[in-house]
């Protein structure tokens, strides 16, 4: 009960923050739109609410076709990245685990790149097989990185990150090679490598959402097991947990979410590292709290950062991945210096 009350407050706070950030994002851009109008135009899109704000038709098009899909995809990607980051940290018992640092994002991007240049059917948005292929790439990377970091039955924390960074470089190199040699057809790969939401569309959001929702559902069900996994394997087994099975399920679900995020937005690093860590610092480490809070605050964080990305030197965009790396790199270093405290 105490834990439940302790979770409701931060969740309400997070949802309120998310709503504010979304409205803010909708107002910003080449054509400034007042917050009230922007919110009304957005809410009007919901099937059971009707608003007819007094606004020019261009405003409606800007909100519905340009800014809203962007906000929606930022929510999806932010939640997917930080939720999967929290899950990876739980499984590997390593606060530095993150879809980007583990090489999973680059693996997914390589999978997506291969789908783009393959003869597989692709719709006009360059999508179709992309999420599935990204998922395959993500899974393959997570298996590889785990095997590479394994020594004597346990996964070593430092080797894990090193293996992840190495695999990430390899996958990125292959993706770049495909981009350079793939001709016109390979051009969308550019967006994956830099990472950003400038190419999003409603189609992408709708195609990727089920992956993220499915992953979240699995993580929600297994979150108590993730708490048990924070103990060493032996203790977890003694408490009746099927350790290997649980890890495989959680890794698959987290990779599904990370792959969906990459399929929508390309490689965006460090979100899965920073958000769960901030949540843990503020409200403690239990997964039943960490998981929903990471999803909400991750979504809010990415909506905010993306708004910054498309307005700071507007009309030109700064790739989102560059901004998250700019904030995330230093936080990684700080975390690394303090890592002992969290690991021992």
């Amino acid at each position: 009960m105490q834990a439940a009350l302790g979770t409701v407050g931060p969740i309400v706070l997070g949802l309120a923050l998310l709503a504010c950030v979304c409205v803010f994002a909708l107002t910003r851009g080449a054509a400034p739109i007042p917050a009230g109008t922007a919110a009304a135009l957005a809410l009007d899109q919901l099937p059971w609410i009707t608003f007819t704000p007094d606004a020019p038709a261009t405003w409606q098009r800007i909100i519905v076709d340009v800014r809203l899909p962007r906000v929606a995809s930022a929510i999806l990607v932010g939640a997917a990245l930080s939720g999967s980051g929290a899950a990876y940290q739980g499984v590997f018992r390593n606060p530095l685990a993150d879809p980007f640092l583990l090489g999973i994002a680059s693996g997914a991007a390589l999978g997506a790149s291969l789908a783009i240049v393959s003869p597989l059917p692709i719709d006009s948005y360059g999508f179709g097989w992309v999420p599935a292929s990204a998922f395959a790439g993500a899974l393959l990377t997570v298996v590889l990185v785990t095997l590479l970091a394994r020594s004597g039955g346990d996964v070593d924390g430092v080797s894990l990150i090193l293996a992840g960074v190495a695999l990430s470089s390899i996958c990125s190199a292959v993706s770049s090679f495909i981009l350079l040699t793939g001709g016109q057809k390979a051009q969308p790969i550019f967006a994956f490598i830099f990472g950003g939401l400038n190419t999003v569309s409603w189609t992408r959001v709708v195609l990727a959402a089920p992956y993220v929702v499915g992953g979240i559902a699995v993580l929600g069900i297994t979150s108590r097991a993730l708490d048990v996994l924070q103990l060493d394997e032996e203790q977890a087994e003694h408490l009746g947990l099927h350790v290997t099975r649980t890890k495989v399920i959680v890794l698959a679900a987290a990779s599904l979410m990370a792959a969906a995020a990459v399929a929508v937005a390309g490689i965006i690093g460090f979100v899965g590292l920073m958000v769960p860590h901030a949540v843990r610092l503020a409200w403690g480490g239990g997964f039943r709290r960490l998981l929903p809070l990471s999803l909400i605050y991750g979504a809010a964080f990415l909506v905010l950062v993306d708004t910054f990305a498309r307005t700071v030197i507007g009309p030109q965009e700064v790739p989102l991945g560059i901004i998250t790396a700019f904030i995330g790199g230093p936080s990684f270093l700080v975390l690394m210096r303090r890592r002992r405290r969290w690991l021992l």
Binding site: A225, V228, E234, R280, G285, W342
Partner: peptide, 25 residues
């Protein structure tokens, strides 16, 4: 010498003793 996750509270750790009785859900 069981490993103790440093960021977990005492009560949270003791509550994990209920895991075999509660399961996941």
């Amino acid at each position: 010498l069981p490993e103790a996750p440093p960021a977990m509270t005492v009560r949270e750790l003791v509550a994990l003793g209920r895991f075999p009785h509660l399961g996941l859900l």
